[in-house]
């Protein structure tokens, strides 16, 4: 693993103009360096600016001050090297599971011939174990399956960074655990760099190499960064009594509910 930052968020501010000369300073002086192949989670109370950071990295919103560099290149527009998995899956309802992924592959991998496109799409459908549902439409499959298709679509364009905004937030806890396992397995296989936003303490510790804890807005910034020194693959059952796991968990709970408690939610 190289030591130079793969993704460098360098002194970034984000200010939303509110009209009539008013403005809201959402982020102030956010600094974060992310290594290649790392899984990083960003945790914080709702409204602190987690989605804002992710949208800046994705290029879906503009930076007010500072710069974000991916492999030393400045980010100023969306692009397929930064794939996004949205909270509400955002699959196109008029396309089947297969077609949703195919559409992305066809656009981004224009070098592939039809047979290669097919193989490529199938490979990513298999990666999320959805071969049996490949001809179904989004309305015909469960929320967890939709989110898996969303992940497969994002990975199929072979991004440098996978950005996930509370990807499992809308799912029940059993489905959520199942998808977390899928994600860990896939990351082991593909070695993607992943940034995942969550407000779930266990999810953050289970999935990530580092947990980025954010202070509350306005002028939110990074409060603490926690290293999770647990080897992959991780097993949720055995971790339950693991010292390191419990310490990490404790540190995040301490941060969220004592140091930066939010009382108005």
């Amino acid at each position: 693993m190289s030591t130079k930052p793969f993704l460098n968020i360098d002194h970034v501010d984000k200010i939303f103009p509110l009209g009539k000369g008013k403005e809201y300073v959402a982020l102030r002086d956010v600094k974060l360096e992310i290594r290649e192949n790392e899984i990083v989670s960003i945790i914080g109370h709702s409204g602190c600016g987690k989605s804002t950071i992710l949208n800046l990295i994705a290029g879906l919103d503009t930076i007010t001050k500072g710069v974000i560099l991916l492999e030393d290149r400045e980010i100023n527009a969306p692009g397929p090297e930064r794939a996004v998995v949205f909270q509400n899956h955002s699959l196109l309802p008029w396309l089947s599971v297969y077609q949703n992924i195919e559409m992305a592959v066809k656009k981004v991998r224009s070098d592939l011939n039809p047979k290669e496109v097919r193989d490529h799409v199938i490979r990513y459908i298999d990666l999320v174990n959805l071969d049996h549902a490949k001809d179904k439409y989004p309305a015909e499959i469960s929320g967890g399956m939709k989110q898996r298709v969303g992940i497969a679509r994002a990975l199929s364009i072979e991004p440098k960074v996978l950005l996930m905004d509370e990807p499992f937030g809308a799912l029940d806890s059993l489905t959520r655990a199942n998808l977390q396992d899928h994600l860990m397995r896939i990351q082991m296989q593909t070695g993607n760099t992943v940034i995942i936003i969550t407000h779930d303490v266990d999810e953050a510790v289970l999935l990530s190499d580092r947990v980025i804890m954010m202070t509350n807005g306005p002028e939110a910034t990074i409060g603490e960064i926690l290293e999770v020194n647990l080897p992959h693959p991780r097993e949720r059952l055995t971790l339950q009594h693991n010292e390191e796991y419990l310490q990490c968990r404790g540190a995040i709970v301490e941060f969220l509910y004592s140091k930066f408690a939010k009382h108005d939610e």
């Binding site: 290029g59 969306p78 692009g79 397929p80 949205f86 955002s90 992305a104 364009i157």
Partner: peptide
């Protein structure tokens, strides 16, 4: 057309025509 679909278009860098 929902903002989500348009974001998908942006990430994939679809041309206006596409």
């Amino acid at each position: 057309v929902s903002e989500d679909y348009l974001n998908v278009a942006k990430v994939l860098q679809l041309t206006p025509f596409e």
